[in-house]
Design a protein around this nucleic acid. Structure first.
Lengths: 393, 393
DNA sequence: TACTTTCATTAGATCGATCTAATAACTAAA
DNA sequence: TTTAGTTATTAGATCGATCTAATGAAAGTA
């Protein structure tokens, strides 16, 4: 019985060289005994006088079938719940699976049946709460469809995005949800679509990309934010953060312009300051803004993260955000509700956006070959405490 | 040339029934012509008078090899950069890949070579900044090793955790990083380890689980937090949030106890309030705390999220956190630095924790079969503004 | 009884790669 | 020239499942 101890070594093969014919004979007997009792636990490899005994780590459907006394095909049908299987055989096979500790190999199955149960998700950054909220929405929805998420982050680098797209394809994802790096070429995406793998863009649009899009109505968002500020009495309103290459920036700017013009105000280019969409970007933008001879009384920030940075810098400069300067953000990330003053912002319903993207992608994977669709969510102003200042002293 | 148009239909097969022998003849000619020029783009299936022409969506290594005039095995060797390949054949094969738009099927390759390039990551919740930070650390590190992340969230449900673990195994992950649901049995995890798939626990320990662990020294963390408060002059210090089943809670509690006893103070069980580790949990805990006849002067919160909720509730109740009540958090999530007052907290270096977990897991995957290892990070007190109150009026 | 129909089951091919062991081609040494 | 040694290449088996088409058995029908 001592030889059995060898088998308990995790994941390792035991081997021994024998010279004596008696030893060989006894080993052969041991081998026969073991095979009779644990046929699915042990493998033997005999080379000359060298006998290798290895633990079988992976139980396959073949093993299950043999154990249950049926064919591989029948076992497979049981797995997939075919109605052509007798209750008796089903139970027999299921019992064998249980007993042997069978683990279904979805990857091998997908290879043969040419389906995929994974979806690629490529976003800019995880630390950004906008994306983690988006990810939550996507993840929850895909889970309902039995799809598993493969994750990649680009940090807004085009080369990383290219690499991630390739990796996803190599992993045979059924589809890809992509928040594209601004200014990235649309050719690779169209190529992926041509391969029959659907792509859904979220949040950021790519011109020329011939695929689905889920996002918020940025024009309307900019409009309602600035409308609100104008209505509060502001006449000099800055637009802070983000970059003009971003489709979302362009939309928000358009809404900003429109609201101002509608109110009979002029657009002052010096009040439009681009900066990275990070907290640091907000800080930098405010530094520039404070140098202006004629400061604005209100700031519409490209997103909440920038707004938070902006508010930090304003406090540092002795300007009380909310009291001395009105602030409106965009996205309604969780932090917006907890900082002080609580941030008035345009909600883009990020989770719902993720859920929509997931649903749309799944419908494509399932084969609805419609024309490229866009789902545009209506933003909503969430009024909190960051706009007490009315622009009048 | 009209027939070529059919080929541009994405992912669809064209078929037509022919009766006239002349038409058949011409189709045969078209077929020969197409096959000569685009041998890897088109498939023909002829059944009786019915000829089906379908676009070949997937280019395989077989196709590449045929196009380059070599064997499948040679093409495979080129892919893997074998040194036994002549420069001439290498270039020939690479050119063919380029021309045909070959996409490497990593999944099929992994099936045969029994390796895995994916890692499963199971955490409680994404919306929680602690986990999104952890995820960033893990993701960045794994990326360096060429490993792709498959994601799952449990929302602290044991049944979901079980399901996710199964899914990960079915997807043939090479290893799993798990932030276990508190109180979940360790048997499934040990079974996975026995299958030869390494598991690394992060943040939360499971008794009996025979696997690696990466976490912060919770005892020390609790100790330095409470030491600081004691040193500031506080004598009644509450411990708020989290649940006593969590190994991390137990550790922090132990440090809390130790620091109090060391300072000659007694431990008052009424000052220990358990609640969910969410913002809402913080709010609820403070509600209970405010009912106490003899209120504490300082609060050590189980984590920053709870601390944020607690501070919100205190403000609502007219108590100025920082000024009227000292608060210390745990984890140092990004929000801690932006809320007002800025939160003094114990940093658990979450990203680094993730990176350590990733490295440890990868070393296991690569086959270092050491004893289960624990990596315990030293926490550090980050002093900010939430402890101005010294406990004396 | 003979024939069709239906149903459970299965052998063998297949998905797209890698691996093994053998073969061909080309040198270098005897 | 022959032999051995090295190097580039390849045929065929293989990974673990599904799929196709065929099989045999049982039930229903004429």
């Amino acid at each position: 019985m001592h030889e059995l101890v060898l088998l308990t070594l995790p994941n390792q093969a035991a081997s021994l060289t024998v010279n004596s014919p008696y030893l060989i004979l006894s080993l052969v007997l041991i081998r026969l005994t073991l095979l009779a009792h644990l046929p699915f636990m042990v493998n033997f490899v005999v080379l000359g006088g060298h006998m290798k005994l290895e633990k079988k780590t992976h139980i396959t459907l073949q093993d299950v079938a043999k154990h249950a006394g049926v064919s591989r095909a029948t076992a497979s049908l049981v797995l997939r719940g075919s109605k052509h299987i007798t209750e008796a055989t089903r139970e027999k096979v299921l019992a064998s699976m249980q007993q042997l500790g069978y683990v279904y190999d979805r990857v091998a199955a997908n290879l043969r049946s040419k389906v995929s149960t994974t979806v690629g998700l490529i976003i800019m950054e995880l630390a950004n709460p906008f994306y983690s909220e988006l990810l939550v929405g996507i993840h929850q929805e895909l889970d309902k469809f039995g799809q598993t998420v493969i994750l990649g982050t680009t940090f807004d680098s085009q080369s990383i995005q290219e690499r991630l797209l390739s990796t996803m394809l190599e992993h045979r994802v059924g589809g890809i949800i992509l928040s594209a790096v601004p200014g990235s070429p649309s050719a690779p995406i169209n190529r992926i679509e041509q391969l029959g793998i659907p792509v859904v863009l979220v949040g950021r649009r790519l011109p020329e990309a011939n695929c689905d899009y889920v996002g918020v109505d940025n024009v309307l968002g900019g409009q309602i934010a600035v409308d609100y500020l104008v209505q509060k009495g502001h006449r000099r309103i800055a637009l802070v953060g983000g970059f003009s290459q971003l489709s979302s920036w362009q939309g928000r700017k358009q809404g900003y312009d429109h609201a101002l013009l509608q109110a009979g105000l002029t657009i002052d280019p010096s009040l439009i300051i681009e900066s990275p969409a990070t907290r640091q970007g907000g800080i930098e933008a405010i530094e520039k803004l404070l140098l202006l001879p004629d400061r604005p009384t209100a700031i519409f920030c490209y997103n909440d993260t920038i707004a938070i940075g902006a508010m930090m810098k304003l406090k540092d400069a002795g300007i009380n955000p909310g009291q001395d300067m009105a602030i409106v953000g965009f996205d309604d990330i969780p932090e917006a509700a907890i900082i002080s003053p609580k941030l008035t912002t345009v909600s883009s319903f990020t989770r719902m956006m993720g859920a929509h993207a997931a649903r749309l992608l799944y419908s494509r994977i399932e084969g609805s070959a419609l024309e490229p669709t866009s789902v545009i969510l209506k933003p909503q102003l969430i009024v909190r405490d960051s706009c007490s200042f009315t622009g009048k002293y």
